[in-house]
Computed example of a mutant assay.
Amino acid sequence: MKTLLRILPVAFLALFFTLTMTSCAAIGDIFKAGAYTGIIGVIVVIVLVIWLVSKMFGGGSRNS
């Protein structure tokens, strides 16, 4: 039950972002801003996804 309560807020946040962000608008804005902005954006998204997955599946060194 503790694991479910830890994962639930992250799952709701991911669902919220999935439903509210449109990919076509994001891609259009990236192309308007330039290539370097797109590269930095992709790197930030990849790092964020890796961080979220590690938090969801116990990527920390602390045991509770």
Results as ranks from 00 to 15, higher is better:
residue 24 C to E: 15
residue 24 C to A: 13
residue 49 V to L: 11
residue 38 G to Q: 02
residue 17 F to T: 08
residue 43 I to Q: 06
residue 64 S to D: 13
residue 15 L to S: 04
residue 49 V to T: 07
residue 42 V to P: 01
residue 38 G to T: 00
residue 51 W to T: 09
residue 29 D to M: 11
residue 6 R to Y: 08
residue 13 L to W: 15
residue 47 V to C: 12
residue 55 K to Q: 10
residue 9 P to K: 04
residue 43 I to A: 15
residue 37 T to C: 07
residue 3 T to Y: 03
residue 2 K to F: 08
residue 33 A to P: 01
residue 36 Y to G: 10
residue 13 L to M: 13
residue 55 K to V: 13
residue 46 I to F: 13
residue 38 G to K: 01
residue 16 F to K: 11
residue 36 Y to L: 15
residue 39 I to Y: 04
residue 7 I to Y: 05
residue 58 G to A: 02
residue 32 K to T: 08
residue 21 M to Y: 15
residue 30 I to Y: 00
residue 32 K to N: 09
residue 24 C to G: 14
residue 35 A to G: 02
residue 43 I to T: 15
residue 55 K to L: 11
residue 61 S to M: 08
residue 53 V to G: 06
residue 33 A to F: 03
residue 44 V to H: 02
residue 8 L to E: 09
residue 53 V to L: 15
residue 59 G to Q: 06
residue 30 I to R: 01
residue 13 L to N: 04
residue 5 L to C: 05
residue 1 M to Y: 13
residue 61 S to A: 10
residue 14 A to C: 08
residue 15 L to D: 09
residue 26 A to Q: 12
residue 51 W to D: 07
residue 41 G to R: 03
residue 47 V to K: 05
residue 62 R to Q: 09
residue 46 I to L: 15
residue 8 L to P: 03
residue 18 T to V: 11
residue 16 F to Q: 06
residue 36 Y to M: 14
residue 31 F to S: 07
residue 41 G to L: 06
residue 28 G to E: 13
residue 56 M to R: 01
residue 64 S to W: 10
residue 61 S to Y: 14
residue 43 I to P: 01
residue 2 K to D: 11
residue 7 I to C: 11
residue 63 N to V: 10
residue 2 K to R: 10
residue 62 R to D: 11
residue 64 S to L: 12
residue 41 G to D: 08
residue 12 F to Y: 13
residue 6 R to N: 10
residue 59 G to H: 03
residue 44 V to F: 04
residue 30 I to T: 02
residue 26 A to M: 10
residue 4 L to M: 03
residue 59 G to V: 06
residue 63 N to G: 04
residue 20 T to Q: 13
residue 6 R to F: 12
residue 17 F to Y: 10
residue 57 F to Q: 02
residue 55 K to D: 10
residue 4 L to W: 02
residue 4 L to R: 02
residue 19 L to S: 07
residue 35 A to E: 06
residue 5 L to E: 13
residue 5 L to G: 00
residue 23 S to L: 14
residue 39 I to D: 03
residue 16 F to D: 04
residue 47 V to Y: 14
residue 44 V to I: 11
residue 45 V to H: 11
residue 49 V to D: 01
residue 1 M to S: 03
residue 62 R to W: 08
residue 43 I to W: 04
residue 37 T to N: 14
residue 35 A to R: 03
residue 49 V to A: 10
residue 38 G to M: 01
residue 42 V to L: 14
residue 41 G to M: 03
residue 10 V to K: 07
residue 54 S to L: 11
residue 27 I to G: 00
residue 28 G to N: 11
residue 3 T to H: 08
residue 39 I to L: 15
residue 20 T to L: 11
residue 26 A to P: 00
residue 38 G to F: 01
residue 43 I to R: 05
residue 12 F to K: 07
residue 19 L to D: 12
residue 14 A to D: 05
residue 62 R to A: 12
residue 10 V to G: 04
residue 1 M to A: 03
residue 24 C to I: 14
residue 43 I to C: 09
residue 50 I to F: 14
residue 53 V to I: 15
residue 8 L to T: 04
residue 17 F to V: 10
residue 41 G to C: 09
residue 20 T to G: 02
residue 33 A to T: 07
residue 26 A to N: 04
residue 14 A to H: 01
residue 42 V to A: 13
residue 44 V to D: 06
residue 43 I to Y: 06
residue 15 L to I: 08
residue 4 L to H: 00
residue 8 L to C: 05
residue 10 V to P: 00
residue 12 F to P: 01
residue 49 V to W: 07
residue 49 V to E: 05
residue 34 G to A: 00
residue 2 K to P: 03
